[in-house]
Design a protein around this nucleic acid. Sequence first.
DNA 1: TGATGAATATTGGGTAACCGATAAATATAA
DNA 2: TTATATTTATCGGTTACCCAATATTCATCA
Lengths: 93, 93
Amino acid sequence: MKGYLTYLILWNLSQTRMNGAQITREFEKRRGTKPSPGTIYPALKELKTKGLITVDNKKTYSLTIDGENELKSACKLFCKIFYDAKEMSEFCK
Amino acid sequence: MKGYLTYLILWNLSQTRMNGAQITREFEKRRGTKPSPGTIYPALKELKTKGLITVDNKKTYSLTIDGENELKSACKLFCKIFYDAKEMSEFCK
DNA sequence: TGATGAATATTGGGTAACCGATAAATATAA
DNA sequence: TTATATTTATCGGTTACCCAATATTCATCA
C-alpha cells in the first residue's frame, strides 16, 4: 500500500497546521511505523515547490488555497475509488 | 495515488468471482480510467503465484483461503490508515 | 555559554507499481 | 470455415514512492 503519503499530508494539514515532526507522528499512528525523515521532508519540499503548502518561520506547514483545491480533487478521487470503504471496514472486523 | 491495485483486486474478488476483463471494468468504474492489460495480468499472475487467488478453466479468478486472510490483514491496515475516511467524504462534497 | 537532544534537511538510491506495445489465445458470428 | 472482436498474456521500460544514512539547524537547559 503505497502512494497515499502525499495525499495524507495534505489531508492532515487541512485539519490543523503542523510541523514535520507532528506529521511524522501522525503517520506513525496511522500506519504503525514512523516514516523516515527521508520520506517526509522531500515530500514537504515538493508540496511547497508546487505551491500547495507554505511554511512560516517556525517551520509550521499549512495548506494554501491551491493546496485545498488539490486536496479536494484528490479526496474526490479517493472517495470514488474506495466508494465501498464502509463495507471494507465491516469485512475486516 | 498508487499501490492500491493489488489490494482492490483481492477486495473485488472477495465480493464475486471475476475474469480479467471484468476486473478491468471494475477499475474503470472506480478510477475513471482503464488499467492497462500490462497492469492487470501481471498483477493477477503474481497473486496466483503467491497462492492468494486461483483460476478455473474459464479464466475466472477467485480468492483462496490464504487470499482471504491476506485481504483481511490488508483491510485492517487500510481502515487504520484511513480511519477518518468518512470525514474525507464530507470534505470533498 | 556550551552541551545535548530533537527537529529539519539533503543525498543517493532501490524497487514496487504501473504502463504501452505487441502478440497470442479465445470467443462470436457471418 | 473465415473473419472480427474480445480477452488474455508477455516484455521492456519508466517513474512515483519511499527509505537509510548522514548532515545541519534549532531548542532547551544545566
